[in-house]
Design a binder for these strands. Structure first.
Length: 421
RNA sequence: GUGGGUGUAGCUCAGCUGGUUAGAGCGCCAGGUUGUGGCCCUGGAGGCCGCCGGUUCGACUCCGGUCACUCACCCCA
């Protein structure tokens, strides 16, 4: 039986990895520009980090975690998301001591046990950010503006911002009750899962996709109409900030999100040309999470975006990313000492050129063909008479012209030609 | 966890209602005389026809199971 990669994982091969690198570059430069520092955390954590951080009643914790016991009997979990670990690290290293808000970003693999589908994998990759220690609505705005900036940088425009506010500990209970009261009157119309949700998490009924549930909740009370004064003010400020940046958004009262820790602002970036898994990114405010993880009361906001989905969208747009072509391919003729060719290759490489050569002792004809196919701008041909003279033939692959130059001058000839061309 | 679709060379795919050595294009390798690529020509390597079982004289082809991929539900990034 052939060895295969585990279900829901992907090998990122040459030819595709260039897209990833381009995206990662964009992510890093944009974060850097906005004052966010990268933080790199372990891919597994104590299971407790997620149980307390993400919430026991979430799907993630209930059925999607890769949890295992290590040889020391510790229960560990492959991280299913990035926020809880960042909060854990923020507390563990007392990052508040470096000034608030702590503005951190991450980029890396996440793991969730789910049925793989278009845009959904068991190992997937996210980039995201957290700003911990400020309740400013300006940061909520920043969390939406940054991914938008990254997408635009990459040439991706086809998405929508959905926005909502689900209130805080002070006002949400009353809203939840009002919603429940409303939905109870339409109990018969709801699907079985929503009937169950009514008790534990009635907000989730709002984003159920069953037609009857959608209709039943059509006239339901909206969270943003039941906010306390502070939350209402905050929500207004967030919208004002988005307007100030000229970011278009849609207030969507059905947007509630599946992680327990959110308060006030929640948002989602919805890709318009993706399949069923159309969330390019999402996030919100989680003013209670730091405290729930054992820290002092600390407000925070964050977002995360799915790299595979961004890449998928770019692919549909036909955005290409290719590895840069070679500057030179060294062609060795006849009985010429291959060590001379290797030495020349390394000399050119040291000078900063991208250089390849043959390692299979192939015929000159075959080497020329490979040089051609590799897209190399120049072939550097090394024969017995050239090695003896300390020269090489530098051939412009496009024009076919070639000249014999001393080996010391090859770099200049290639650089010069490139400047002209 | 539940459904639908699909599994034949490295890639994209043919293979008619079961019949003898399983094909094409692209890619890869070599050659078209002795130190030069693209175009063209010739040749070559490469397939447990996903796997297991069944029906049959005979299965890539039909049936069952299984695994994988894929799309959707669910959930989200």
């Amino acid at each position: 039986m052939e060895l295969r990669r585990p279900r829901g994982t992907n090998d990122i091969l040459p030819g595709e990895v260039e897209r990833w690198q381009r995206l990662e570059d964009a992510v890093r430069t944009v974060f850097d520009r906005h004052g966010y520092a990268e933080i790199r955390l372990p891919v597994f954590e104590h299971t407790e980090v997620f149980v307390r951080g993400v919430g026991e009643t979430t799907d993630i914790v209930e059925k999607q975690m890769y949890t295992f016991e290590d040889q020391g009997g510790r229960s560990l979990t492959l991280r299913p998301e990035g926020t809880a670990p960042v909060v854990r690290a923020y507390l563990e290293h007392k990052l508040h001591g470096r000034g608030l808000p702590a503005k951190l970003y991450y980029i890396g693999p996440m793991f969730r046990y789910e049925r793989p589908q278009a845009g959904r994998y068991r190992q997937f990759h996210q980039f995201g950010a957290e700003a911990i220690g400020s309740d400013s609505p300006l940061l909520d705005v920043e969390m939406m503006a940054i991914p938008v900036t990254i997408y635009r940088e990459l040439g991706l425009e086809n998405f929508r911002i959905d926005l909502n506010s689900i209130g805080c500990e002070a006002c949400r209970p009353a809203y939840r009750q009002a919603l429940r009261d409303y939905l109870v009157t339409r109990l018969d119309a709801l699907c079985p899962t929503c009937v169950r949700r009514l008790d534990r998490n009635p907000l989730r009924v709002l984003d159920c996709k069953e037609k009857p549930c959608i209709e039943a909740s059509e006239g339901a009370p909206k969270s943003y109409e039941h906010l306390c004064d502070e939350c209402a003010e905050h929500f207004a400020a967030v919208q004002k900030g988005l307007d100030a940046l000229g970011l278009e958004y849609v207030v969507n009262y059905r947007l509630v999100r599946g992680l327990d820790y959110y308060t006030r602002t929640v948002f989602e970036l919805v890709g318009l040309d993706l399949g069923a898994q159309d969330a390019l990114g999402g996030g919100g405010r989680y003013d209670g999470l730091v405290e729930a993880c054992g820290g002092p009361p600390t407000p925070a906001v964050g977002f995360a975006a799915g790299i595979e989905r961004v890449l998928l969208s770019l692919e549909k747009l036909g955005v290409e990313a290719e590895a840069p072509a070679l500057d030179a391919y060294i062609v060795v003729q006849g009985e010429t000492d291959r060590a001379d060719a290797l030495r020349l290759a390394f000399a050119l490489r040291s000078a900063g050129l991208r250089v390849e050569m043959d390692y299979l002792n192939r015929s000159m004809r075959a080497q020329m063909r490979t040089a051609q196919r590799s897209g190399a701008a120049y072939a550097v041909i090394l024969g017995e008479s050239e090695t003896a003279a300390g020269t090489a033939l530098v051939k412009d692959m496009a024009s076919g012209e070639q000249q014999e130059v001393s080996q010391e001058r090859i770099v200049d000839v290639i650089r010069g030609g490139r400047n002209l061309g």
